[in-house]
Measured scan of single mutants.
Amino acid sequence: KWEEIAERLREEFNINPEEAREAVEKAGGNEEEARRIVKK
């Protein structure tokens, strides 16, 4: 599940997989929260 979210974030925000994974981890697997983290 987290991998899927990280993949979507990576494609959408054009970030590297590591950044995407970190955002999802910080968000506890919550996609909306992960998006907010990435946008900062």
Rank of each mutant, 00 (worst) to 15 (best):
P17W: 15
K1I: 11
E4G: 08
N30A: 03
V38G: 03
G28F: 15
K40M: 15
R10L: 11
V38R: 02
K40Q: 15
A27T: 06
K39M: 15
K26N: 10
G28T: 05
F13K: 01
E3Y: 08
E3L: 13
E12T: 06
N14L: 09
A27H: 01
E19Y: 10
A6N: 03
R8H: 06
N14R: 02
E22I: 13
K39V: 13
E11F: 13
I15V: 09
W2R: 05
W2N: 06
R8S: 06
A6E: 11
P17F: 15
R10G: 06
R36E: 15
E3P: 08
P17V: 14
K1Q: 14
V38T: 06
R35T: 04
E11C: 09
A23L: 06
E25G: 06
K39W: 11
A20P: 00
N16T: 15
P17R: 12
N14C: 08
V38H: 03
N16Q: 13
E25K: 13
R35F: 08
K26T: 04
K39Q: 15
F13W: 05
I15L: 11
I5S: 03
R10Q: 13
V24S: 02
E18Q: 11
A27E: 01
E32Y: 08
A34W: 00
N16M: 14
R36F: 06
A34Q: 00
G29E: 02
E12K: 05
K1A: 15
R36N: 15
A6H: 04
E7Y: 09
K26A: 14
E7I: 11
I5N: 01
E25Y: 14
E19K: 08
E11P: 01
V24Y: 03
I37K: 05
K26W: 03
E32C: 07
E11Q: 15
R21P: 01
A34P: 00
A27R: 01
E31F: 12
K1H: 11
V24Q: 00
G29A: 02
W2M: 07
E31I: 09
E22S: 13
L9V: 04
L9Q: 02
I15G: 02
E4D: 12
N30I: 09
E32I: 07
V38P: 02
E3K: 09
E11K: 15
A6S: 07
E4I: 09
G28R: 12
E7M: 13
E12V: 06
E31W: 13
L9S: 01
R8T: 05
G28V: 09
E3V: 10
A27G: 04
L9A: 00
F13H: 03
I37Y: 10
R21V: 09
W2T: 08
R35M: 05
F13A: 03
N16K: 13
E4Y: 07
V24D: 01
